[in-house]
Amino acid sequence: MPKLIELADGEARWADDAFVHVADEDAIPDAGDVILSLARFEAEGDALLSSNSRRVGVRIESDQEVEVLAYDLPRIAVVALAFPKYRDGRAYTSARLLRERFGYQGQVRAVGDVLQEQAGFMVRCGFDAFEPADGATPEAWTKAARRFRHVYQRAADDRVVAFEERAS
């Protein structure tokens, strides 16, 4: 199971991951929280959720649009946004839309080629859980997320923007 870093109140910590990523070719385990592909979720999500005994997450690939989840978001516990390569920046848009446009309150998790060098960007876009691919520790993640004392634009976090600092 990959290691999971969770971010809360600006502090990153190791977390026990209750969720299992279920590959499309594998059977869904009898019990426990699962993260499914979008296709699998669309086919089997209703049945799983109505049993009400476990939490369900959805993995969105970088070429899929989070808008398709709009109506299901209140009952989805985790949206895992995939970075096939760290250079593929589509998940940043997906995360911002989840938080800012759809007001999603659940976990937005970064999976795939997730590197600490991009931590600051991810945190600003609303990611709050990370499966680092580079062996990064929570300490590195906290540091990366706090590296800049100022930010210049509004995003999905609650940072005070430069122009707000100036006005205050």
């Binding site: 940043y92 991009q118 600051g120 960007f121 876009c125 210049y152 634009q153």
Partner: peptide, 13 residues
């Protein structure tokens, strides 16, 4: 300049 500097969404276009 300010808006685009380390833009969190648009740094990996």
């Amino acid at each position: 300049r300010q808006w685009s500097t380390l833009h969190p969404e648009f740094s990996f276009l």
